[in-house]
Design a protein around this nucleic acid. Sequence first.
DNA 1: TTTTAATCGAGACGGTACGTCGCGTCTTGTT
DNA 2: AACAAGACGCGACGTACCGTCTCGATTAAAA
Lengths: 215, 215, 215, 215
Amino acid sequence: MSFPRTKIISMSNGQNKSNPPHVQNRGRKATQAILDASLELAEQSGLDSVTVEGIADYAGVAKTTIYRRWPNVSSILMDAVLSQVNAAAPIEEQSTLRETFAVSMKLLTKLYAGRNGKILRALIGRAQVEESLREAIETRWVEPRRKLARELLRRGMRRGEIRPDLDTDVVLDLLYGAIYHRLLVPYKNGKLNERFVEVLLDAVFGGITVRPGTS
Amino acid sequence: MSFPRTKIISMSNGQNKSNPPHVQNRGRKATQAILDASLELAEQSGLDSVTVEGIADYAGVAKTTIYRRWPNVSSILMDAVLSQVNAAAPIEEQSTLRETFAVSMKLLTKLYAGRNGKILRALIGRAQVEESLREAIETRWVEPRRKLARELLRRGMRRGEIRPDLDTDVVLDLLYGAIYHRLLVPYKNGKLNERFVEVLLDAVFGGITVRPGTS
Amino acid sequence: MSFPRTKIISMSNGQNKSNPPHVQNRGRKATQAILDASLELAEQSGLDSVTVEGIADYAGVAKTTIYRRWPNVSSILMDAVLSQVNAAAPIEEQSTLRETFAVSMKLLTKLYAGRNGKILRALIGRAQVEESLREAIETRWVEPRRKLARELLRRGMRRGEIRPDLDTDVVLDLLYGAIYHRLLVPYKNGKLNERFVEVLLDAVFGGITVRPGTS
Amino acid sequence: MSFPRTKIISMSNGQNKSNPPHVQNRGRKATQAILDASLELAEQSGLDSVTVEGIADYAGVAKTTIYRRWPNVSSILMDAVLSQVNAAAPIEEQSTLRETFAVSMKLLTKLYAGRNGKILRALIGRAQVEESLREAIETRWVEPRRKLARELLRRGMRRGEIRPDLDTDVVLDLLYGAIYHRLLVPYKNGKLNERFVEVLLDAVFGGITVRPGTS
DNA sequence: TTTTAATCGAGACGGTACGTCGCGTCTTGTT
DNA sequence: AACAAGACGCGACGTACCGTCTCGATTAAAA
């Protein structure tokens, strides 16, 4: 999935002589109307009943205009959600590793409780069956975050906060995996909240085995 | 989702007088043909293109016969998969907790690599958007396994293998969450294999922090 | 074009055990509603703007129901028109050949002036470009009438009313051709009325050359 | 239909100052490319699938350039065909009336068997439903020919070849109507060839009734 | 020679209709 | 009574063209 098929080109450079029309004014308005409509409709009635025709109607746009930019509904929602979501749960370094992840993971649980998070969760579900969506999520959501997080882990290793022989990805699977487990794998009373993040971090950073002198 | 609407009743007891007819011979054949067809078609062309009409054709069965038993495609596949999957990755106690989970988790990764696992993964994805499916997965797949695993963890606590103050569910999220993370959240080179399970267990049971005298 | 794909079977015979459903009550109603709607819409806004969707809406019927019976709009209109038109301009023998054709041709001009005639004219136009429609018109409209007319001509020959060496089809082209010429080939002040029929018959039966003793 | 909207003005006169540019070189090329493309495409795949977009592509011309000159596809084809067809079946006086029409009608049957004739036939069909096309055919094809033919008939009357009391239009409907009947009204084995023309003329000029002393 | 204004190609836009697929309901014999 | 068969109303799909509307990029004329 390479959406939008034609990338919206930043207007910040001086000369934009020959941008394709939809990058220009008329088309840009249509693009935005489509993205807005898709979010609006997804919120109103669930991702599953968002249709291209529905979006076209709601956005006051022709179906062809949509198909000129995106191949299907998931890719529209993907664009719409990611443009808003990437900033919503940043990963920023705090004084300690534990604190860094505490902050990040709490933001993440908050994100998934909100409108865009609900849609993102549905998209991750859908990605199990739609390869192009899988790639898009990986490229535009997961990997950029992982890259950052790996770097932070490595700095924590250098600082002696965690064992230097660990596979950083395994550590991330441990931390974030627990969250996504509660999010995606249905399980009674698996609340996803700040309390859970703290208990989780206790277990991960404190270790789960009985250590002499720890009790 | 309450599927199957009509539970297939075991014939092993002596009197089956009051079973609905389709549970008897004619209907039982149809039921089985439907389940088989759904798996066959899901494998052939992806869960997303499995349709009630397709199953009816393939199974040589009328659509009404399908709708008499299940409300939609996911519920058919749910039944078809679970009947085979629940036995495929049992959780059985080994000599140590670590060993117990090592065995269980390796079986699980193997399961998700196979035909039924692929379908189950797609169903978990679909469940993000279909409440009844979410419940079914919880009730018939996740909770039974969690219940067992919790008990084993508690026995490990009593034996002193792990800290007794831990929330068992958090520990399970830690262990299995990492696996599901790799399974569901697309991430480059996130291989799901036995090696990963071992490294993961090292981190969980060994702890991730630098411990005096461990280096 | 073999429309309707499934012929409406007369119910007059005693046993109609296994007619396809649309021949039975529900379907028969739909069929009639479609035919009625097509005529209604053709009259309202011209054959060219009759669409399958429009007919479906007007008839309160699903598009698929239409496509199950007919392949396109022209074939619907063809059925609708012919069911009414074949009786409207019968060819019936009168006391003389000239009288026979006078009556028939006057009926024909009247037919083409009416609702169904206007549609039939448009269909003949459309047939220039749609082979299946051409065949349908030939089989169900033109040929049956020509067959009758040829026979009447032959009887006229036997009675000595016209030359026995004539090609009957050529005579028919002469008579009816003049009418269709005025109908189809646009030509100013080419009125198509009873007066024209009489003048035409004068020319054909009287001959156009100057005959000794005729003046 | 007033096509072409902008009349192609002959360049033979000395001053062409005020001609719109497309009548000059650049535009003239485009105009010709459009006309050629329309004929080419009509021949390739039938008049019904000739589209403005198709012509634009084939001619390497923008859609706007087409719409600047013609309002729709039929008018383009009308122009394209008439520019070639008017010369193809001229009506020229021969030694006798019968000979005059024999030659003319044979040329006409030949015309309708060729590429342009097939398109013209389709246009006449289309004209049943498109008023502006009807007018164009009348003004630019039918009437000029009728005017000529009427005059020739009148001279034949003066020469005593045919009855002077006849309505010339009726005679023309008789003669040409037979041809158009075979052309437009589908009828099995209604071959349109020179043999038919001869037999037809025999019937018209010989009369169809049994005449004393003719046998 | 340079400007300038009409026309050009290209193709996006809002629409309408197409013909198809699958849904879940229904109806009709058959088993 | 449940079954196979399949028609039904419905909603959405993705595509083809419609006729309108910007866009720079040619031109060929006027300045």
